[in-house]
Amino acid sequence: MSLILSIETSSDNCSVALRQENSLLASELVNQPHAHAAQLAPLIQTVLKKAGIKAASLNAVAVSSGPGSYTGLRIGTSTAKGICVSLNIPLIAVPTLQIIAREAFDKFKPDGILCPMIDARRMEVYCQTFNSHLQPTSQVTAKVIDENAFAELLAANKVFFFGNGSEKCKEVIKNTNAFFLPDVLPNAITLGYMALEKYQAGEFEDVVNFAPFYLKEFVAKKSQSLL
């Protein structure tokens, strides 16, 4: 039976879950921005301890593959790869926007176009659209939001926006076909459920060469004290 450890670090949330086939054995979540480096290892230890499982028993590790927080994705991926290499087990990756879409679908059962959004900078979001069967209907893109955003799509469809990037869009997108779903964030429980499907299908990543999908390169800010 598959025993999969799931690590989700693409947003301010840092979560870990352990699943054996269709059974969730344990999970932990911390909502603390910029705390992934300090919190991830203790969360993994706590989840394994709660489940009474030793790390050596794991069959695979799953991570969200992005886009999302550059630092969070990097920390989650490096931790997952380290475990996979040390135990010689496969790595599974699930795109973050697909995880968020699955979260919204399971929680709200929306009947229309689903549009998960990840906050980028200013009025920009990373987003992708899905139909009501969770099949992608567009590519992942970085989109600047204004009053005309998604106008063509909204003209003929109900569109459900959610994710941490959707909050800043509420006051801008006023179309009557636009609906905003609250409190939909990626988490390791949903990631683990989706990872099980990939495990059963043998869809694994190259542990050595795998890298998260950042969509945009990280841009470091200059310290104000140096200006």
Rank of each mutant, 00 (worst) to 15 (best):
S132M: 15
G76S: 06
Q39I: 08
S65L: 05
N59W: 12
G163W: 13
S64C: 05
Q224W: 12
K168L: 07
S10M: 11
H36Y: 02
L24I: 14
F108L: 02
L91K: 05
G202C: 05
A211K: 15
N13M: 15
A41T: 12
R102Y: 14
I53W: 01
A55Y: 13
K143A: 01
I44Q: 06
I189T: 12
K216D: 00
T129V: 05
S15Q: 08
I118W: 01
K50S: 13
S23C: 09
P95N: 14
L40G: 12
K222P: 01
N59A: 10
Q20G: 07
K54N: 13
L134I: 11
V208R: 11
K143R: 15
P186G: 04
A101V: 02
A156Q: 13
N88W: 12
L153R: 06
N157L: 05
A178N: 12
A120R: 09
D111L: 11
A37W: 02
I92S: 02
K81R: 09
S86V: 14
L153N: 01
T79E: 01
K216L: 00
E167G: 15
V144N: 07
I89G: 01
S57Q: 15
K81W: 12
P186F: 01
A156S: 10
I83N: 01
I145D: 00
R122P: 08
K170P: 09
E103W: 10
I44G: 04
